[in-house]
């Protein structure tokens, strides 16, 4: 395993160093530096187009970057398929639009990864799937298809689908912003429970500031492709340092 570089003297689970990304000539991420400790929960916010999604999508290589380095759980993100596979194994992702597989039942959505990627036997995968469906409080929907579920239910299934892969890190990209107000709470509750009981490393792009205050260890503010400010939730909301963040907070709170 020579290609997989071990970072021995670093116990941070994600290490992003001087990361830069361009879309053509458009400089979308500028000198991003971010270290995430194991078990740390980070909320990322910022105006639309500031590069929040792009940054967290670099972590499981839904996006490639041109400069800088990114190490996840000791594995460096390079072009080698082995490294990409190893990193994706550790990183689960929940999307704004759920992205469930519409042709598979809820149960099949949940067991697909464990069966085909982790090569688990079917009954074991199904048992795990049912466990997590119970976790997100919809075990009775197992045999339905995604189209038959409400948005909030679909998002909880999507969370359960990621959990079934037993990842070290969970990425959330605006998990509640496609939901009706009454469904937002049921999804946030699941995420809060997850944060408090599993102690999972979480990076969450969201504008739900109450969620940030409740669960985050650190809140990050991005603008124009840069990390402008980061702080504990208390300081972040009470004493914003930059005028840019003050303006942003005054707009969303």
């Amino acid at each position: 395993m020579s290609v997989i570089e071990q970072q021995a003297n670093n116990d941070d689970i994600i290490v992003i160093k001087d990361l830069n990304k361009w879309y053509g000539n458009f400089h979308v991420l500028k000198d991003i530096n971010l270290n995430v400790r194991k078990g740390e929960r980070i909320v990322i916010c910022g105006p639309s187009g500031s590069g929040k999604s792009t940054m967290i999508r670099c972590i499981n290589r839904l996006e490639e970057f041109q400069k800088g380095s990114l190490v996840v759980n000791g594995v460096e993100m390079i072009d080698d398929v082995k490294n990409i596979e190893a990193i994706r194994k550790e990183v689960g992702m929940v999307f704004q639009h759920f992205n469930l597989f519409p042709h598979l039942t809820i149960l099949e959505n949940l067991t697909l990864g464990p069966i085909w990627v982790q090569k688990k036997p079917k009954d074991e995968a199904e048992a795990t799937a049912m466990k997590y469906l119970e976790r997100v409080k919809i075990p009775d929907q197992a045999l339905k298809f995604p189209g038959q579920l409400s948005g909030g239910q679909q998002q909880r299934v999507a969370i359960a689908r990621s959990l079934c892969m037993a990842p070290e890190i969970m990425l959330f990209d605006e998990p509640t912003s496609a939901l009706d107000p009454e469904m937002i709470k049921e999804v946030l509750d699941v995420m809060i429970e997850l944060a408090e009981e599993e102690g999972m490393t979480m990076l969450c792009v969201t504008h739900e500031m109450n969620f940030a205050k409740t669960v985050a260890h650190r809140v990050i503010f991005m603008d124009g492709g840069e990390i402008v400010e980061e702080n504990t939730p208390n300081e972040f909301f009470e004493n914003p340092e930059t005028d840019r963040l003050q303006l942003f907070l005054s707009q969303i709170l």
């Binding site: 994706r88 194994k89 992702m93 999307f95 639009h97 597989f101």
Partner: peptide, 13 residues
């Protein structure tokens, strides 16, 4: 939709 590819990728398929 692109989301289908992304979900499949993020599962590691």
């Amino acid at each position: 939709p692109r989301g289908q590819y992304e979900a499949a990728d993020s599962l590691g398929l």
